[in-house]
Nucleic acid binder design. Structure first.
Length: 830
RNA sequence: GCCCGAGUGGCGGAAUUGGCAGACGCAGCGGACUUAAAAUCCGCGGCCGAAAGGCGUUGCGGGUUCGAGUCCCGCCUCGGGCACCA
């Protein structure tokens, strides 16, 4: 594997041979088993977001897993028992689509891809504990999806309701709010429409406050961006609910408002056009109103969501010829139905205050409704300017509120409304309950049986898992109802409660259910009696470092946090937040844009690995920049990485001192570099500045080359110390090279199981430092001084320096700033 | 429209609390070795200058400071998130 050139020059580093050599040895040694009995080391749990088996691994995987491997290997070197698992997020539409397109069995297609990815993943040499692998499409896994579902069902956290849901006409299935991106289906970019359907939901809104408030714990540990996105998504607002009596209706209508202080400024009332309330109000009015309303509703319904997104859309609506009574002044407010009020936010009805809300003002101007200012500002009158004044000011035209500012008025009016039973303080959320049922085949069956007599009956837990029927003979093509409905033998069962003929629920769960708790299953993946071992959870949680793409900033991370809280309430997990630290790696691009076949800028990972080797690709990904930044493959140099690795590797063959030689006797200059680099790498890794860690390691390699060629020589113990340190540090980025170096240095495998060398603080202290002398902030001179020099000594030394005197040119000195030992700034008087 | 984040050489990027801007690498240029090339090793790399030396410089304009890539104010550009949420 090592060849010596004919002239006896530099050895050639045979990348392919080194990879082929170590792979079977590592398989044999299985160095990364975690949680072995009797292991007393402290724990760390490093988690990479698991892949979806869509084909072979791609460049994005290469970056993500190279990054995730660093903290795992770092903590191993630092003496921790590290849990670093991997598995496959294996349910989902692509398997089904492949089945429809090519007639493949979704299960066979999925397991084939998993086998391919698994083989690639092994070659990629991440420090995974291969004993813990799981696939979410295994019945042994989704069994526990069903179990958790039933726990939630029992507690009212899983429920079915009819609602206007997001519908993707292409995927022919419903979508959660989180899966609609800008009015388009997250998966296929088809414009999403609405459909009235009865669907399964998880009551995530029950946890809205905790999901929001517990983020305080994550401050500084998660990217701010992700925290902000989650906060916006939950969208908590505070205000009041106010009851309006409606003429000709027994029950008052409640509205939600964040501005109860502007109640005296309400001049009309609006209900969501697509709400039941609007339909009822129209029906109880005249036939003419009913007709106008029906026509309007039809128009609204045919407008796709994507068109409703335009903010400058003109306001439309229809007058219902009904009136609501303002509880604070008994004024009659005309009621309109309009699409700009949403049926699923608040109560689907609003009081309209056109002077202080732009949307209400736009509507008032379109329908020629009065505008009454109740908050005095120094801005133009909204009635004439067309610009609402939403800001603070003193209340006017508002009875008992006159003269108060916004905050005081809100407090006072809420107290008054609460006193006479006409309203109360209230909170509202943008977050909606999580729609989890899907009308597709390749997912977890919902463990519910529908009985004509007993209604919804949970499948008894001892009969779990409800296994998916074979896809053989099923029509998997999207048709708006679940393919499982066609599996007659599977579908028809007897009711667990009364024994009569009944049918299974035919929907399957959103695959985000699978990934919401996989980090728990990794703790005891082979247990067949529980979802996960509670004692193991106590030991391993929380996840110390979670690594994954920012694409999951809302969806997966919100859902997983929700699941964790539910399981916390069940007493099964010990922590409120599952992921203590989060790192979002960037994406891999080519020529400034995301790689894709259609763009023709796809770089195949397998080609790159073939050309440059695993280590060079990993190193390139890491060295390209900070882990959270995107990597443009056009800007980086895998061959440069390969060159560096070969340079480091060659050094391991040049060391002539023996294993165990006393480093203390080594060359001081090189030893100082070694220890400074070890120290810097340590700090850089623990602050996730992996690219800097690589740069420092390169500096060490350069220093060793110099020491061997023109310094202390290859036999000096300091050279062995430095090359060993290089191998150990490289094991985090380039495991094959590091392992081979380690062996050439005379050690047994595995370098990953050694420990990070201890930094000698004495070697971090220089025996002289360069002091910069500035005059008015400009560098004029550099002096070599002792690091322990005092301020007075330094000042005197500098001022008596000939070059400094010359530069000063006799100028009067105003002040001298001394920052010993590195800087002196002389300020001459002007 | 609202809310974040970022602008540093030809390129990717580095720079504790404000203290030598450009670490490390890529591409480029020059040299050594070689019959030659590859590989390897060494050096250069903002501008003027042969050199000594001088000048300039972190998107733009101001400010604070002995001193600003870093802090404050106002712009410009790019990227991301949200988008009728009452």
């Amino acid at each position: 594997m090592t060849e010596v050139t004919p002239e006896g020059g530099a050895e050639r580093y045979d990348v392919a041979a080194v990879q082929e050599k170590w792979l079977p040895i590592w398989d044999e040694l299985a160095p990364f088993k975690s949680g072995q009995p009797g292991d007393t080391r402290p724990k760390k749990y490093v988690l990479d977001m698991f892949p979806y088996p869509s084909g072979d691994l791609h460049m994005g995987h290469a970056e993500a897993y190279a990054i995730g491997d660093i903290p795992a290997r770092y903590w191993m070197l630092k003496g921790y028992d590290v849990l670093h698992p991997i598995g496959w997020d294996a349910f989902g539409l692509p398997a089904e689509n492949a089945a429809i397109k090519r007639g493949a069995d979704p299960a066979a297609w999925t397991y084939e891809n998993i086998a391919t990815q698994k083989a690639s993943m092994r070659r990629y040499a991440c420090s995974f504990d291969w004993d813990r692998v799981l696939n979410t499409c295994d019945p042994e896994y989704y069994h526990w999806n069903q179990w958790i579902f039933l726990q939630m069902f029992e507690r009212g956290l899983a429920y079915r309701k009819p609602s206007n849901v997001n519908w993707c006409p292409n995927c022919q299935t419903v979508l959660a709010n989180e899966q609609v991106v800008g009015g388009l289906c997250e998966r296929c970019d088809t414009a999403v429409t609405k459909k009235k359907l009865t669907q399964w939901y998880f009551r995530i809104t029950d946890y809205a406050d905790r999901l929001l408030d517990d983020m305080e714990q994550l401050e500084g540990q998660w990217p701010d961006k992700v925290l902000t996105m989650q906060r916006n998504w939950i969208g908590r607002s505070t205000g009041a609910e106010v009851n309006f009596v409606v003429e000709g209706r027994d029950e008052p209508i409640t509205v939600y408002t964040t501005r109860p202080d502007t109640l005296f400024g309400a001049t009309f009332f609006v209900v969501a056009a697509d709400s039941d309330l609007a339909a009822e109000l129209a029906a109880d009015a005249s036939p003419q109103v009913q007709e106008a309303f029906d026509a309007y509703l039809e128009e609204v319904k045919t407008t796709a969501d994507i068109d409703r997104l335009a903010t400058d859309r003109p306001k439309t609506g229809v007058f219902l010829n009904r009136f609501a009574i303002n509880p604070v002044n008994d004024e009659r407010l005309p009621i309109y139905a309009a699409e700009y009020v949403l049926s699923d936010y608040g109560t689907g009805a609003i009081m309209a205050v056109p002077a202080h809300d732009q949307r209400d003002l736009d509507f008032a101007r379109a329908f020629d409704l009065p505008v009454r200012v109740v908050v005095a500002t120094d801005l133009d009158d909204p009635a004439t300017s067309g610009v609402a004044t939403p800001g603070d000011g003193l209340l006017i035209n508002s009875g008992s509120l006159d003269g108060l500012n916004k905050a005081d008025a809100i407090a006072k009016i809420i107290a008054e409304l609460a006193g006479n039973g006409r309203g109360k303080a209230a909170k509202n959320y943008r977050l909606r309950d999580w729609l989890i049922s899907r009308q597709r085949y390749w997912g977890t069956p919902i463990p519910i049986i529908h009985c004509p007599d007993c209604g919804m009956v949970p499948v008894p837990v001892d009969q779990l898992p409800v296994k998916l029927p074979s896809s053989q003979g099923l029509d998997l093509s999207p048709k708006g109802t679940s393919p499982l409905g066609g599996a007659t033998d599977w579908l028809n069962v007897s009711c667990p409660s009364c024994g009569k003929d009944a049918q299974r629920d035919t929907d399957t769960m959103d695959t985000f259910v699978d990934s919401s708790w996989y980090f728990l299953r990794f703790l005891s993946p082979r247990r067949d009696d529980v979802a996960f071992d509670v004692e193991q959870a106590k030991h391993w949680l929380p996840v110390d470092q979670y690594v994954g793409g920012v694409t999951h900033a809302i969806l997966h991370l919100l859902y997983a946090r929700f699941f964790n809280k539910v399981l916390f309430d069940l007493g099964l997990v010990p922590v409120v937040e599952p992921f203590a630290r989060l790192l979002n790696q960037g994406m891999v691009q080519m020529d400034g844009s995301a790689m894709s076949k259609s763009r023709g800028n796809l770089v195949r990972l397998s080609d790159e690995l073939e050309k440059h080797g695993v280590d060079a690709i990993r190193l390139t990904m890491i060295f390209a920049g900070p882990p959270e930044d995107d990597v443009d493959w056009a800007d980086v140099s895998p061959s440069g990485s390969a060159k560096f690795l070969a340079r480091a590797w060659r050094l391991s063959g040049e060391v002539t001192s023996a294993v165990g030689v006393d480093f203390a006797a080594g060359d001081l200059t090189l030893r100082r570099v070694t220890h400074r680099v070890l120290n810097d790498v340590d700090v850089a890794i623990s602050t996730s500045r992996f690219n800097v860690a690589v740069a420092r390691t390169m500096e060490l390699v350069n220093a060793i080359r110099k020491a061997v060629d023109s310094g202390c020589g290859a036999a000096d113990p300091a050279v062995r110390e430095a090359v060993e340190a290089t191998a150990i540090m490289l094991s985090m980025f380039a495991p094959y090279t590091a392992e081979d170096m380690w062996e050439r240095l005379g050690h047994q495998p595995c370098v990953a199981l050694t420990s990070f060398p201890t930094v000698d603080p004495a070697l971090l202290i220089q025996d002289s430092v360069i002091c910069v002398v500035q005059i008015s902030g400009k560098v004029r001179e550099r002096l070599e001084v002792s690091p322990s020099i005092t301020a007075d000594e330094l000042k005197e030394l500098v001022l008596s320096n000939e070059a400094v005197q010359k530069a000063l040119d006799g100028a009067q000195i105003k002040t001298v700033i001394v920052r010993e030992p590195k800087l002196v700034n002389i300020v001459p008087s002007a």
